[in-house]
Write a protein that binds this DNA or RNA. Structure first.
Lengths: 253, 253
DNA sequence: TCATATATAATTGTATACAAAATAAATAAA
DNA sequence: TTTATTTATTTTGTATACAATTATATATGA
C-alpha cells in the first residue's frame, strides 16, 4: 500500500532528484506547508502518512523529522510522534532576543563592506516584499520578509551565523503564525527600507538602532501572555499536599 | 556478527539506558572520543564498524552521524561516508567571530543579574579548570574550559543562545585540536578569572572587553594560514587550458 | 452510568534485507 | 613496468519486517 503512490507531490517542480536529495525536497515541502498555514502548530506528523504522501518509506521521513526537530520546527515526543512545534511565549522572546544580538552584529559587518550591487539586491528584495503584501499573499510575504534578513546575513559573509539566523528566521515565522495579533501588520517593508538607507549612508549607529527597533516592533506585535497558562497547567494545580499526576505518563504500570 | 557484541563500551558508566536514550549515549561517546583525541579530524566513521562497537544496528549510528553532521562536528559526503570534520581556517575564523558576537551579548545579560551563587559556581569551574591543567590533563582542560563559557550562557538564561554556543564551543575544541600552535597555551584560567571579577564588580564595559580579548587571544593562538593550501590544491593546479580532474569524481563513467 | 480493567489496533523504535554506489583488486593491453 | 579496463568487494542508501509502546475500543464490575 506504500509502493502504489509514485512520488506524487514532490517531483512536481524538481527534476527526478539529481542535485538535490529526496530528503531535502521533502524537508522543503513540509516547511512550506507549515509556513503556508496548511499545517498548524501542534499538528501531528505521522510517519506512515507522510511516507505515503511523498512516496517514500518511513526511513527518510524519520530523517526529515529529526532534522526539523534539530531546528526546533518540530517537536518529537519519544514513542508518541512528531508534532509541529508550538513555541512558548518564553521561547518566542528568546528567539527574538537572539535575533537582536546576531542581527546587530550582522549589520555592523555589512556596513563595513558597502557594495552597490548588494544594496541593489536588498532594494529588489524589499520591492518583492511589498508586491507580495499588496497582492494579499500573506504566506509569501512572511517568506520574503525573512529573505531580507537572510540576504543581509549572506552579505556579512559569515556562513555559521547565517545558518543560525536562518533557523531563527524560520522559528520566527512559526512564532508569528501563532502569536501575531490582528490579521496582519503594516510593518516590515518600510522599516526594511530605512535600514537599507542607513546602510547605504554608512551610518552604523543608526542602522544598528533601526534593526534593533525593527525586531522589537516585531516582538511587540505579538501577544505573548495567554497560552503560558496551558504550559504551566501542572504547576498551577500542583499544590503541596495534593498530587495531580500527568495522565499516566509518570506511573508506568 | 553484529549480535555478538553485547553493548560493550556504552553501559560502562550508565545504567541500562533508562532516562537517556541509546542514541544520546553513542553521541556523547563519539564526541568524547573526538575531544580526547582518540579520533583525529578526517577520520572516517564507518557505519558498520560503529554499529559493531556499540552493539547496535546502522540505523541508530546513522541517526547519531546525522546529528553530528548538523552540528558540523562530522561531515557527510553522500555515498562516501561520514568523517570527523576538518574545519578550514575560514570556518575557524567564522566560529570565533560568531562566539565574540554571542558571548558579548551573554556577558551583557549576565551582568544585569548578579547572583552570588552563580559567581561562586563560576569560580569553582575555573578552579577545576586549573586543577586539570596542573594535572596535565589536556583533553579534560579543553572540556572544562568550554564549560566555563556554557555556564555563563546558562546564567544568561537564553536557552536558544545557549544551544548555539554549545555547538560553537564544541567546534572550537575541534579547531583548537587542529590549529593550536605549540603544545598548549598558558591561557584560559587567568582570563576567565578576570572576567568573573569584572562581572562581580558590575563593570559591563570591562567584562565585555575582556571576553572579546579572551576570544581574540584564542584565535591568535591558532595558525590559520597553512592547510588552506591542501583545500585549494585543485584550484592551484587548475590552470586554463589544462584540466586536472578530481580523481574520477566529476567524470562519472 | 461511571470508572476500571482488558483486549485490540495503530504507531513508533530498531534491526535486517536488498539495491545502488564507490572503492579495491585483478586482469589485460600498451 | 605502467596504464586502462573489468570484476569483486565493501559501504552507503532505502525499504521492509518485527518488537515495543502507546492509543483506542470493548467489556466488566461497582
Amino acid at each position: 500500500m506504500n509502493r502504489t503512490a509514485p512520488t506524487a507531490a514532490v517531483n512536481r517542480t524538481e527534476a527526478p532528484s539529481r542535485k538535490v536529495s529526496q530528503i531535502d525536497l521533502i524537508y522543503a515541502e513540509v516547511l512550506a506547508a507549515i509556513f503556508e498555514q496548511r499545517l498548524a502548530p501542534g499538528t501531528k506528523l505521522a510517519e506512515d502518512a507522510l511516507g505515503e504522501i511523498f512516496g517514500v518509506s518511513r526511513t527518510m521521513i524519520r530523517s526529515v523529522l529529526q532534522r526539523l526537530a534539530h531546528e526546533r520546527i518540530v517537536q518529537i515526543h519519544p514513542n508518541r510522534g512528531a508534532f509541529v512545534a508550538e513555541p512558548t511565549p518564553d521561547e518566542a522572546r528568546e528567539v527574538l532576543q537572539a535575533r537582536r544580538l546576531i542581527e546587530e552584529g550582522i549589520i555592523r559587518e555589512v556596513i563595513r563592506k558597502p557594495s552597490p550591487e548588494d544594496i541593489k539586491a536588498l532594494r529588489l528584495s524589499v520591492a518583492a516584499e511589498r508586491a507580495s503584501l499588496d497582492k494579499g499573499d500573506h504566506p509569501g510575504w512572511v517568506r520574503l520578509s525573512g529573505d531580507f534578513h537572510l540576504r543581509l546575513a549572506a552579505i556579512a559573509g559569515n556562513e555559521t551565523l547565517a545558518v543560525y539566523l536562518r533557523e531563527l528566521v524560520t522559528r520566527t515565522s512559526l512564532i508569528i503564525l501563532q502569536y501575531q495579533k490582528g490579521n496582519a501588520s503594516s510593518c516590515g517593508c518600510d522599516e526594511h527600507m530605512e535600514i537599507i538607507r542607513a546602510i547605504d549612508a554608512g551610518d552604523e549607529p543608526a542602522a544598528v538602532a533601526l534593526m534593533r527597533d525593527h525586531l522589537q516592533t516585531c516582538e511587540d506585535q505579538l501577544h505573548l501572555e495567554d497560552r503560558e497558562a496551558a504550559a504551566d497547567l501542572y504547576a498551577i494545580f500542583a499544590k503541596p499536599g495534593r498530587t495531580v499526576g500527568k495522565g499516566g505518563r509518570e506511573t508506568r504500570k
